[in-house]
């Protein structure tokens, strides 16, 4: 980051290579839409570029950039509450001469479908996706930062502004909730499901 501030554009590409994947997946699992996750990823990196002079070396870059990403996710979730949600099953508005249009459900790519409608997805994946989706926001962000970005609990704490012990507790609560949701799947069953997923 310091090199980028001094004018080394290659240094920024190194940062992008190192962090973009984790950032994208964190955003993807937070907003549940690839297109929107891409837009947010671009926004995060643009903000990094614009704020490069304000970056303080005392703070880790990981903490800094995920703070930006997290704030964007929070804004996104607030906006989503007020967004009009069309029924996925309702037919699209007819255009003149086009007859009955298919439902929105049929036009959404499979990755963007709600968990219940991912008919072709492995059972476990679907269950876990749904369980993660239903986690409280503070637990979900800790869970995703741990899984997607590989951040330590200390880094997560710095990002979300909570003590490390609090972050560990949230992670434990998240795992307990997942455990409850998947209680019918004993570890053996989970292992079988994983094998099933691995072998198609």
């Amino acid at each position: 980051m310091d090199e980028f501030r001094l004018g080394d554009s290659d240094a920024f590409e190194v940062l992008v290579t190192r962090h973009s994947r984790g950032l994208y997946n964190f955003l993807l699992r937070s907003v549940h839409a690839p297109a929107r996750a891409e837009e947010l990823l671009q926004e995060v990196l643009l903000r990094v570029i614009r704020s490069k002079d304000r970056y303080r070396r005392s703070a880790r870059f990981t903490t800094w950039v995920y703070t930006i990403a997290r704030n964007l996710c929070v804004d996104e979730s607030r906006r989503a509450r007020f967004r009009d949600h069309e029924s996925l099953d309702a037919p699209l508005r007819r255009r003149a001469g086009h007859g009955n249009a298919p439902s929105l459900l049929a036009t959404i790519p499979s990755d963007d479908l709600p968990l219940e409608l991912m008919a072709q997805s492995p059972r476990l994946r679907a269950r876990i996706n749904g369980a993660v989706l239903r986690l409280p926001a503070d637990q979900r962000e800790v869970f995703l930062m741990r899984l997607m970005a590989g951040m330590s609990f200390r880094e997560i704490g710095e990002t979300v502004g909570a003590p490390e012990n609090t972050v560990k507790s949230r992670m434990r609560y998240a795992l307990d909730k997942l455990r409850e949701e998947l209680a019918d799947l004993r570890p053996v069953a989970i292992g079988d499901a994983m094998e099933e997923a691995a072998h198609g």
């Binding site: 993807l28 476990l124 994946r125 876990i128 996706n129 993660v132 869970f143 997607m148 499901a193």
Partner: peptide, 9 residues
């Protein structure tokens, strides 16, 4: 399982 279910895209 979560890592498997939520692969990095």
């Amino acid at each position: 399982a979560s890592r498997e279910a939520l692969p990095l895209e």
